[in-house]
């Protein structure tokens, strides 16, 4: 991991949705760096703001009802939020690419694989069609599509779910972007297929020097498998950031600890699982003060009144909890 300037800096990002005259603060001030060459994970449940954060980076939030209201997203010395539409379009797919959760619906059903996979290079690199096809064959082979050249004329429905996710990855990587944002890339897949895709992403990451992955998932095990560092989100805010060793070895936030404790493990067989009490509030109902205070077992009056700041307790290990020191 290089220690020079981060590849991407997200500063105080706020994204809101206006739903039936109410405002849902999906992301309420998120800041983090994505370093060159690293795999950074964002883990959270529904309503945590993890997906909205990732979509905000590429400005893919549907507007209306969504709106990025505040913040900066710095990439290559420019604030992506200040770029014109046309400049932003140049970034998408070329510098920062994205893959999504649902491989079944994320490909256009009426276009051939060839048309979809070559589209980014035709758009961004102005390659001629023949070269674009060569590049597509190369990248489809690299993601493990057998007999790639013959399958170019096939349509998405002729591929299985795992194969479609490989096509998505090929399409995202064809312009050799610096950053790949992967939003729940394996959630819709079977376990043995998930293992294939994770292995592929690791292999490709090893080959793509200096490029980074931002991996969004709800599954801590996938984080442990794939990431260098991890961000834990809850209620639209970062609750904890650290290396995976920090986070799994020395979790500081009560929410992180709750999540880790609630995973069924071999040694807990026959015992009760730890369960975080209560339910994830609806996006309109998160408490003021600490977002987690309505479910936290160590809640104090201060937590309900005063929103905690994200504090650095050890180098690179930050947590948003008033009482993190006492609890650990």
């Amino acid at each position: 991991m290089t220690q020079n300037k981060p590849l991407l800096e997200v500063r105080n990002l706020h994204t809101e949705f206006h739903v039936e005259k109410r405002i849902a603060k999906a992301v309420g001030g998120v800041s983090f760096d994505l370093n060159a060459g690293e795999v950074l994970g964002i883990v959270g449940e529904s309503g945590s703001g993890k997906s909205v954060t990732s979509l905000s980076i590429l400005r893919l939030i549907p507007d209306p009802p969504g709106k990025i209201t505040e913040g900066e997203i710095l990439y290559g010395g420019r604030d992506l939020l200040k770029l014109s539409y046309e400049q932003m379009r140049e970034i998408r797919g070329r510098e920062i690419a994205m893959i999504f959760q649902e491989p079944m619906t994320s490909l256009n059903p009426v276009f051939t694989i060839e048309k979809q996979v070559t589209e980014p290079v035709l758009l961004h690199e102005k390659l001629n069609r023949k070269d674009a096809i060569e590049r597509a064959v190369e990248v489809l082979s690299a993601v493990g599509i057998p007999d790639a050249r013959r399958r170019l004329k096939d349509y998405p429905h002729q591929f299985s779910g795992g194969m479609r996710q490989r096509v998505m990855i090929a399409m995202a990587l064809i312009c050799r972007p610096a950053i790949l944002i992967a939003d729940e890339p394996t959630t819709a897949l079977d376990v043995t297929i998930q293992a294939q895709i994770l292995e592929l992403m690791q292999k490709l990451q090893g080959e793509r020097e200096g490029s980074s992955i931002l991996l969004i998932t709800h599954d801590l095990s996938v984080i442990a498998e794939m990431c260098d560092r991890v961000i834990v989100m809850y209620g639209g805010l970062i609750q904890e950031i650290g290396t995976i060793r920090d986070l799994f070895g020395n979790p500081l936030h009560p929410y992180t600890r709750g999540l880790l404790a609630s995973i069924p493990r071999e040694e807990n067989k026959g015992k009760k699982l730890y369960a975080i009490p209560g339910n994830v509030p609806s996006i309109f109902d998160f408490p003021s003060g600490c977002k987690f205070c309505s479910r936290c077992e160590h809640v104090q009056d201060r937590c309900r009144e005063e929103a905690p700041e994200l504090r650095e307790l050890a180098k690179g290990h930050l947590v948003r909890c008033h009482f993190a020191e006492e609890l650990s």
Binding site: E45, S46, H218, D219, L220, Y255, G258, L259, S262, I263, P264, K272, L273, Y274, A275, I276, P277, N279, V280, R295
Partner: peptide, 14 residues
């Protein structure tokens, strides 16, 4: 279900 809620339901079922 959300990860933090799965454990509740599993415990309840037990």
């Amino acid at each position: 279900l959300d990860v933090s809620v799965q454990a509740q339901v599993v415990n309840l079922m037990e």
